[in-house]
Simulated assay, not measured.
Amino acid sequence: MYEEDFCSRLLALRTEKGVSARDMSLSLGQNAGYINHIERRQALPSLNVFFNICEYLDITPEQFFDTGQNSTALIKKIVENLNCLSQNQIECLSSIISDLAANKGSG
């Protein structure tokens, strides 16, 4: 992933989390403009800070670089919600998802 992609991805993930660059910078123990500097392609984080960024965003480094069509945050939230359901509810949802996936091309 190129520097521009890294910076854009950070901006997208931070925005998705709904936090300001300043708040994120301070939460990471950095100066108030740190994340802004990264997002404006003026700096890149050290590997240690990158891991802290991933932890702050509640994602893995792999998820940070996964820019596929699936929204990792949304999928994670769905999985968290599934953990609150009964086995019967999960089986019903599984059937619905299977039906939707099977009919993907016909909708």
Rank of each mutant, 00 (worst) to 15 (best):
Y2N: 15
Y2G: 12
E3Y: 07
E3W: 07
E4F: 01
E4A: 08
D5E: 13
C7E: 06
C7N: 11
S8E: 10
S8F: 01
R9N: 04
L10I: 00
L10E: 01
L11Y: 06
L11W: 01
L13S: 06
R14Q: 01
R14T: 00
V19N: 14
V19D: 14
S20Y: 02
S20H: 05
S20R: 02
A21R: 15
R22Y: 01
D23H: 06
M24Q: 10
L26T: 08
L26N: 07
L26M: 10
L26P: 06
L28F: 06
L28K: 08
G29Y: 03
N31Q: 12
G33I: 00
G33Q: 10
G33H: 07
Y34C: 00
Y34M: 01
Y34P: 06
N36V: 00
H37V: 00
H37K: 10
I38H: 03
R40E: 03
R41A: 05
R41S: 07
Q42N: 08
Q42A: 02
Q42P: 01
Q42L: 04
A43V: 00
L44C: 08
S46N: 11
F51N: 11
F51Y: 14
F51P: 03
F51V: 08
N52E: 14
N52T: 03
I53S: 09
C54S: 10
C54R: 06
C54D: 09
C54G: 08
E55Y: 02
E55C: 01
L57N: 10
L57P: 09
L57H: 09
I59P: 15
T60E: 07
T60Y: 04
P61S: 11
P61Q: 13
F64K: 15
D66A: 07
T67V: 06
Q69P: 06
Q69R: 13
N70F: 02
N70Y: 07
A73H: 04
L74F: 02
K76C: 02
I78V: 12
N81M: 06
L82F: 11
N83C: 08
N83Q: 15
L85H: 08
L85E: 14
E91C: 08
E91K: 12
C92P: 03
L93Y: 15
S94H: 13
S94C: 07
S95N: 13
I96F: 12
I96M: 13
I96R: 13
I97G: 11
I97C: 12
S98G: 07
S98C: 07
D99E: 12
L100F: 10
L100D: 12
L100Q: 11
A101V: 05
A101S: 14
K104F: 05
K104M: 05
G105Y: 04
G105K: 09
G107I: 03
G107Q: 11
